[in-house]
């Protein structure tokens, strides 16, 4: 058998094996998803309000804010000097 036939044979075996298995319970798969439903972003846009209480204030970005305080600080020592 050449390489193409081997590949096709392997693909066919996989398809037939999957067909022989009982169908995955769709409901079980769905249930799993409920735990990961994200917060809906569009609640913010309701009735002309912003989700933060700074709607009337003027905002100017300041350079000092660009100090990362998140988890990227844990990776700092792992980065090679560029």
């Amino acid at each position: 058998m050449n390489n193409k036939s081997i590949l096709l044979a392997s693909a066919m075996v996989a398809v037939l094996a999957a067909a022989a298995q009982p169908a995955l319970a769709a409901d079980a798969a769905k249930e799993k998803c409920f735990g990961v439903a994200k917060a809906g972003a569009n609640d913010c846009a309701a009735n002309g309000h912003a989700c933060a209480g700074q709607a009337g204030a003027s905002m100017d970005p300041k350079e000092w804010k660009y100090v990362a305080k998140g988890t990227c600080t844990e990776m700092k020592g792992m980065l090679k000097a560029m």
């Binding site: 309000h49 912003a50 209480g53 700074q54 709607a55």
Partner: peptide, 16 residues
């Protein structure tokens, strides 16, 4: 019906 909040004299419809 909902509630608003005042910021600097402006009523912001935050539903908050």
């Amino acid at each position: 019906i909902a509630g608003f909040e005042l910021f600097d004299g402006v009523a912001i419809d935050t539903h908050g």
